[in-house]
Design a protein around this nucleic acid. Sequence first.
DNA 1: GGTCGGTATTTTGTATACAATGTGTATTCT
DNA 2: AGAATACACATTGTATACAAAATACCGACC
Lengths: 236, 236
Amino acid sequence: MKDNVGDRKAKLAAHLKRSVLTLALEPGVDLDEAQLCQAFDVSRTPLREVFRELAGEGYLSLRVNRGARVSDLSHTTLRDFFLAAPMIYGAVMRLAALNASAQQIEALKLAQVDFREALRTGSASHRALANNHFHQITGEMAGNIYLLPSFNRLLIDHARIAMTFYRPQTQQMAKNLTEACQQHDAIIAAIETRDEVAATQLADDHWNLSRNQIELFVMPAALDMPMGELSRKTSA
Amino acid sequence: MKDNVGDRKAKLAAHLKRSVLTLALEPGVDLDEAQLCQAFDVSRTPLREVFRELAGEGYLSLRVNRGARVSDLSHTTLRDFFLAAPMIYGAVMRLAALNASAQQIEALKLAQVDFREALRTGSASHRALANNHFHQITGEMAGNIYLLPSFNRLLIDHARIAMTFYRPQTQQMAKNLTEACQQHDAIIAAIETRDEVAATQLADDHWNLSRNQIELFVMPAALDMPMGELSRKTSA
DNA sequence: GGTCGGTATTTTGTATACAATGTGTATTCT
DNA sequence: AGAATACACATTGTATACAAAATACCGACC
């Protein structure tokens, strides 16, 4: 099971990504160079290179003379997220339908098998990662180097937000998950038949469902309030 | 004029960015670590960190065991560019109109002064950099962390493509440049009055003008062909 | 003459020592 | 007691030596 440094570096990067996506490393926490060096048996130089790389992709943020930390997921970033996501997701899905290769479609189907499996028996982390993987493949299908940077950044925070509701706490939330799964199937079908219109529409539907799911979590029960004081706009 | 290492690092990064944007470093050329280390008086470690940073932003691309090179600007990337740019530019301009701070508007006006100056007396590089700076500020105004990665990547290649026509070779091209300048003024006005509709429209106009400019260069004179064999679709 | 294979050289990647910066703590002075 | 400062410690940034990989060069063989 021993491998060269390059492999250990890749392992480290993958581990950090997974940890960030699944909230095993929570937004804002500091990363300890010395500890990670020891844990993954690499020296500080390659470790710090990985840090910079992941910082560029949006997983981490680096502050001069004060080390690396997991990217924040603040109030304002959430607002940005809801503004940008529908547009980018839609564009990516449309391009995916236009450009997907047969090989990529196979990969997408495999990802969906895993996602379904995760919904049935997996942990919340497994679900988040499987869903993340599914959408990453659609990003590859779109294959537009100018869209991907933003899309991948969105996927990072989508996974982190989603982690909060991949442990469904109500009947409705559970139902939404199975619907999301069905939408994935529809997305695969649309891509396979190169139906860009359907794909774009499905991106929109899928996104709206996701947003509902998030709202169910952020505003749990509505508590059956008599008046309208707790309207949606208040928290913004 | 002596400064600490951090400053030299920043200088190096700025130099590389400028060189890439102005085609002083052409797409695809290899970068020599040893030479740059000597030129900027930094050791290889910080130099390589800069490389990774710029690679993350899209200026360079790193290939394992084979060093850094300037990002390519190929046929296929151009196609991606034309697909993604209108959407992202429009979104950024709209958000800029909604969110710009007074300070940012001042900065934008200064950038426009410089751009106008560059059109009158500056070099092609000066023009490209000034225009780049102007649009970078609109990106900051929009301030959406999910849109910015793609937007900034677009700006890099926009500058590089634009370099080819900031040396206007026909009457029409020169005229287009002055029109672009006027559009900048209109953009400033729209942002200052928080007119998101106008800003979005102007983004579209500005983009179309830019594309025309590019097309004038890519398909120079049309040569007054009698038949229609040289129609636009052929090269795609 | 051309191609294959092996060695020398250059270039890239990693480890580590050292310098600089930031942080925590104790001591002193008001 | 509380604040300020100086000192010790921990963490981050840089330089450099070394290892590994790629490239260039050269000669042998077909």
